[in-house]
Simulated assay, not measured.
Amino acid sequence: MRLMIVVEDVPQFADSPAERPLKALFQAINRSEQFLIGDADITQVTSGFGLIGDFKAGRKGIVLKPDSFDGEAVFKVPFPKVKRAEFPEGRGIFVQAGRAVTVQMPLAEASVLTVASPAAG
């Protein structure tokens, strides 16, 4: 059985009580067949140390609305020259195994994302 772990706003946990357990979790995921999805602002994940270093250690992911320097800063993979105007909402660069490919993520309607609460009985 494979697991998918999702962590929103990873940098918020640096220098917090959750940092050590998350660092251990990220290291375990990187040594396994499990799948980690983490959300972060690109400007907050340029460090290669601590929690952020372990988060980036898998060297794969998607950068939405990328700049040319983002590939080197995050994945140590050079991105081609990019024009932000060519990257509308949902378009980004996917990196895996040292290769960068432009991708388009599907967009969901806001109404689809709303969680319905059970009807009061």
Rank of each mutant, 00 (worst) to 15 (best):
R20G: 04
F94S: 03
G92L: 06
E19D: 12
G58R: 01
Q34P: 01
R91N: 13
L64E: 01
I42P: 03
R99A: 04
G50S: 07
E8L: 01
V115S: 06
F26D: 04
F26Y: 11
K60R: 13
N30H: 11
S32M: 05
R99T: 05
V95G: 06
K76W: 01
R59G: 00
P21M: 03
E8W: 07
E89M: 09
D9N: 12
K65N: 15
R91D: 15
K65Y: 15
A24D: 14
D41I: 05
V115G: 02
P21V: 02
K83L: 13
T114N: 04
I29W: 07
R84N: 03
D54F: 14
A24W: 10
G53V: 06
V95K: 02
A28P: 05
S68A: 13
L3S: 05
F35K: 04
P11Y: 03
A120C: 09
T114K: 12
R91T: 07
F87M: 02
T114V: 14
A28S: 15
T46I: 13
R84T: 14
K65R: 15
A100I: 07
E89C: 09
P118C: 08
G53C: 02
D67R: 11
V45Q: 05
P106E: 02
V45N: 00
K56R: 15
P118K: 11
V115Q: 11
F49P: 00
P11M: 07
V115A: 14
A116F: 05
A14P: 05
M1E: 13
Q27W: 10
P78N: 08
P11V: 08
I62P: 00
Q27A: 15
S16H: 07
P66R: 05
V7L: 09
L22V: 08
V101A: 02
D9Y: 09
K65A: 15
V7F: 09
R20T: 09
F87R: 02
Q12A: 10
V103G: 11
F26K: 01
E86Q: 15
S68H: 05
F55A: 12
I37L: 10
I52V: 15
K81N: 08
P88Y: 10
